[in-house]
Nucleic acid binder design. Structure first.
Length: 175
DNA sequence: GCCACTTTTCCTGCTT
DNA sequence: TAAGCAGGAAAAGTGG
């Protein structure tokens, strides 16, 4: 059930503040639990205690054990552990409260989005990859490579990109 | 070690 | 002039 729920969905105010924090770190830290209590994504749990339990169970499940997790298993599961740049961008877009205005949808239905804070995005990606020399110029070069594979489509506007036919998981009704 | 794939780095030229 | 985009080339990193 929780497989499609992103890390940032759980922790809207924490995940990108410390992108290197592990699931174990997050779930073992009681300070973060209150944040779940007000998330609409968890309205299906009766109360905060139930939410905690569900999350803890999920954190304890074998699929989230760091040692046993393969990149393929988790690449689409969480923004923090997405192995590919486009998934990182996608997950950031799917958590508008957490991306601090770095990315925003231009046309949600068509998958068109805009990079609002290019330097911040590059910095965030750099943190994700433990590369403090990352720049938006380099990041955008990587994004342009996705044109070839159909993951992104070209949009003739500055800082605007569009998810292509080979990108998945960005459509609201297919989450 | 090899290969495929993705990403990074650097570059030139063009556009806004 | 600066910032951003396009794309070539080479190299690094990673996983199978």
């Amino acid at each position: 059930m929780l497989d499609s729920v992103t890390h940032s969905t759980f922790l809207p105010n924490t995940s990108f503040c410390d992108p290197l924090m592990s699931w174990t770190d997050l779930f073992s830290n009681e300070e973060y639990y209150p944040a779940f209590e007000h998330q609409t994504g968890y309205s299906f749990f009766n109360d905060a205690e139930e939410t905690k339990t569900a999350i803890k169970d999920y954190a304890d499940s074998s699929c989230l054990k760091t040692s046993g997790m393969k990149s393929q298993d988790c690449h689409s599961r969480t923004s923090l552990q997405s192995s590919h740049l486009w998934e990182f961008v996608r997950d950031l877009l799917l958590s508008p409260e957490e991306n601090c205005g770095i990315l925003e949808w231009e046309d949600r239905e068509q998958g068109i989005f805009r990079v609002v804070k290019s330097e911040a995005l590059a910095k965030m990606w750099g943190q994700r990859k433990k590369n403090d020399r990352m720049t938006y110029e380099k990041l955008s070069r990587a994004l342009r490579y996705y044109y070839k594979t159909g993951i992104l489509e070209r949009v003739d506007r500055r800082l605007v990109y569009k998810f292509g036919k080979n990108a998945h998981g960005w459509q609201e009704d297919k989450l």
